[in-house]
Simulated assay, not measured.
Amino acid sequence: MDVRSVTSPTMPRHGDAVVNLPTVPVEHGVRADIEIRTRPTVSLVIPARNEASNIAWVLEQVPDCVDEIVLVDGRSTDATIVTARSVRPDIRVVHQEGVGKGDALRAGFLASTGDTIVMIDADGSMAPQEIPHFLYYLSHGYDFVKGSRFMAGGGSLDITRLRRTGNQVLMRLASRLYEAPLTDLCYGYIAFHRRYLDYVDLTTTGFEVETRLVISALQSGLRMTEVPSMEMPRRYGKSNLRVVRDGTRVLRTLLRTHENGVSGYAVQRARAWAHHRQTPAVTAVPAVTSVAAAPSTPSAGS
């Protein structure tokens, strides 16, 4: 798998592919060389549920390179939608029908229209100012770009010791199983070309969705790279993340989709054995045949 970690403190502005038109005759001082600059359109997908205290800050930081913002609202009971529209009247609001972060992202991806899709959280933990950094590598040959808190230039001001340990264990397992030198696994700052939407798995519903996106991109042969990202503390409110519960779901996701090599065979055999043990045995019930009662025989002497 082609996964490369890169750092780039400075970079050109995103997009700007130059198309040179055929040379035309010079008339009245008009330049003979005409250049038309075009760039892919960018959709930013933000899943949110009761983030009225945070969404305004996030939307105010979105850079001009983003053409469309899709807010997926998960049945918020606060003023999330009203606040978002007051900051960005052009925002598109999608009402989530299912539950879970994975379901929200799926709804947002399908509703977006940009050539490039970027996903971030609504709690202020991810800086929208980093978006051009992701787009730069998408415009220079990569198909799928993910943020990393644990490579040079990245970091986290929010992660606990337990979360860091769990992420490192899961990340090393993923790197071993899928032969990809990852430095971060459970981080949801991701960007990819829309043309690969059919190749990323959107079937998971919970917080393990980031892991499933990465694994499906690797299995589909997408050219992937990591870029440094700084995770900030959630600005207001309490996170819905549950370390043990969601970590277990990530582990199941890693094992469920690993099928390559000897280890893949062993994992799938173990899963099949465990499934067989959990399936209750069905006891055969003998068929009952109804026999008509024989007419009674009169006793002798009756």
Results as ranks from 00 to 15, higher is better:
261 G>E: 14
14 H>N: 04
103 D>P: 02
290 S>Y: 14
235 R>K: 15
50 N>L: 04
50 N>K: 06
224 M>D: 10
45 V>T: 03
81 I>R: 01
81 I>A: 01
26 V>P: 01
240 N>G: 11
118 V>H: 11
71 L>G: 04
86 S>F: 11
291 V>F: 05
149 R>L: 09
52 A>D: 12
244 V>M: 06
139 S>H: 04
216 S>L: 00
192 F>A: 02
289 T>H: 15
27 E>G: 10
25 P>G: 02
299 S>N: 06
23 T>S: 02
282 V>Y: 01
109 F>P: 11
119 M>G: 02
169 V>C: 05
165 T>V: 04
45 V>I: 15
89 P>M: 07
19 V>L: 05
244 V>N: 02
72 V>A: 00
244 V>L: 13
163 R>I: 10
77 T>Y: 11
227 V>D: 05
296 S>D: 11
127 A>I: 07
296 S>R: 00
19 V>N: 03
168 Q>K: 13
107 A>R: 06
41 T>G: 05
5 S>E: 12
122 A>R: 02
126 M>R: 07
37 R>P: 10
155 G>E: 12
119 M>F: 04
109 F>D: 10
265 Y>V: 15
275 H>N: 11
180 A>R: 08
116 T>R: 11
41 T>P: 02
252 R>T: 01
97 E>S: 14
167 N>L: 10
299 S>C: 09
118 V>L: 12
51 E>G: 03
76 S>E: 14
